[in-house]
C-alpha cells in the first residue's frame, strides 16, 4: 500500500486479454510461469524414459519388459538372498549347534536372542503379550511355571509342533473333559471341586464348602492329570494347581467355568510358518526370558 500508483498500472499493456468481455470485466491471458512449464515438460520426458526403462506398455500377448528387465518379484528374491547372505554365517551356526551350546556361546546367544526377539514380536506377542507376560488363557512365559515343560528342548518341541494344533500330526495333545457341559459332574459337585482346588494353594474357601466331597471328586476325576496334590503333569500339559500362578484366574467362578467347559488352549505349529533357525532362536529367547529350566 506504500506505492498506490505502482499497483494500479494496467497490466493489459504487458500480457493482453483473452478477448472476452463480461459486462466490462476482461480476463487477462497471463501465461504460465516458465519454470512451471519447463517442469511440466520435464515430467513428460521423464515418463517417456520410465516407459523405456521399466516394464510398462501392454502388448497383444505380453508387455514391454524395459531395457534392464527389472521386476519387483525378482528384486525381492534378490533382497531376501542378500539378507540370507548377511545373516548366513550366524544362521548356519544356529542351525547346526545344539540349543544348549547356543546358550553357552555368548556370540550365538546374543544373535539368537536378537532374532528371537524380532520373531517373538511378530508371531508370539499377540497371544503371549509384548513382554511375554501372557493374558487370561495364554500363559506367561517369564515365570518358572510351565505347562509342557520349560527346558530348551521342551520349549523347542512346543514351538515346532504346537499345542492341540490339528494340522500337525506331532502336536502336543490332551483334552480336559467338559465335566459340567457333558454332565459328568453335577453343579454342586463342581462347586465343591472348585473349592478344593482353591484350598490346594491355600486360598480361602467358602464357609459351607464341602472340602471332603471336593477332595474325593478331585482324586477320582482330576488327580490322574493334575496330580494327587495338584502338582500338575507336564507330559499332558496339566497345569500345576497348588501354586499361585493361574492360567485363567484363581476366582472360584473362573475355576467352575474351566471345570464345566474343559478343553485347553491351542498354539500353532510354527514349523509350518518359520524356518528352523528362527524357531531355535525363539526357543533360546523364550528360555532366557527368566523362567527357563
Amino acid at each position: 500500500m506504500t506505492n498506490q500508483t505502482e499497483t494500479n498500472v494496467d497490466p493489459r499493456k504487458i500480457v493482453g486479454t483473452t478477448g472476452h468481455d463480461w459486462d466490462g470485466i476482461e480476463e487477462l491471458n497471463t501465461p504460465l510461469p516458465r519454470w512451471w512449464l519447463w517442469t511440466f515438460y520435464l515430467t513428460i520426458i521423464w515418463a517417456l524414459g520410465y516407459w523405456v526403462v521399466y516394464p510398462a506398455i501392454p502388448l497383444a500377448t505380453s508387455f514391454t519388459k524395459g531395457v534392464f528387465g527389472w521386476t519387483s518379484r525378482e528384486q525381492v528374491v534378490k533382497d531376501l538372498e542378500g539378507l540370507k547372505n548377511l545373516r548366513g554365517p550366524m544362521t548356519a551356526k544356529i542351525e547346526t549347534v545344539s540349543l544348549q551350546d547356543i546358550e553357552k556361546t555368548p556370540e550365538l546367544l546374543s544373535f539368537a536372542r536378537a532374532q528371537g526377539a524380532a520373531a517373538f514380536a511378530v508371531n508370539c506377542s499377540p497371544c503371549h503379550g509384548a513382554g511375554a507376560q501372557g493374558f487370561k488363557g495364554y500363559p506367561n512365559l517369564n515365570d518358572d511355571d510351565w505347562l509342557w515343560g520349560g527346558s530348551l528342548d521342551a520349549i523347542h518341541t512346543t514351538l515346532q509342533n504346537g499345542i492341540r494344533w490339528d494340522a500337525n500330526k506331532d502336536t502336543r495333545t490332551s483334552m480336559m473333559p467338559a465335566f459340567g457341559k457333558e454332565g459328568l459332574l453335577k453343579p454342586n459337585e463342581i462347586s465343591a471341586a472348585a473349592d478344593y482346588v482353591r484350598s490346594l494353594s491355600g486360598l480361602p474357601t467358602e464357609k459351607d464348602a464341602d472340602l471332603k466331597l471336593g477332595q474325593k471328586l478331585f482324586t477320582e476325576n482330576c488327580a490322574a492329570c493334575h496330580g494327587e496334590n495338584g502338582e500338575g503333569n507336564q507330559d499332558v500339559g496339566a497345569p500345576k494347581l497348588n501354586d499361585k500362578v493361574w492360567l485363567y484366574g484363581p476366582e472360584k467362578a473362573t475355576i467352575i467355568e474351566r471345570i464345566t467347559l474343559g478343553g485347553g488352549g491351542q498354539m500353532p505349529a510354527w514349523s509350518q510358518r518359520l524356518d528352523s533357525p528362527t524357531i531355535k532362536s525363539l526357543a533360546v529367547y523364550v528360555h532366557t526370558l527368566g523362567g527357563g529350566q
Binding site: 506377542s125 499377540p126 497371544c127 495364554y138 494340522a167 488352549g265 510358518r273
Partner: peptide, 22 residues
C-alpha cells in the same frame, strides 16, 4: 490363516485389548 487359534480370534473380536493391550 493358521497364525492364531480360534479362541484367540474369538477373544480378539470380542475385545481386542484383552489380548493386545495397545
Amino acid at each position: 490363516g493358521g497364525k492364531y487359534s480360534d479362541d484367540w480370534h474369538r477373544d480378539h473380536l470380542r475385545n481386542p485389548r484383552s489380548v493386545v493391550p495397545a
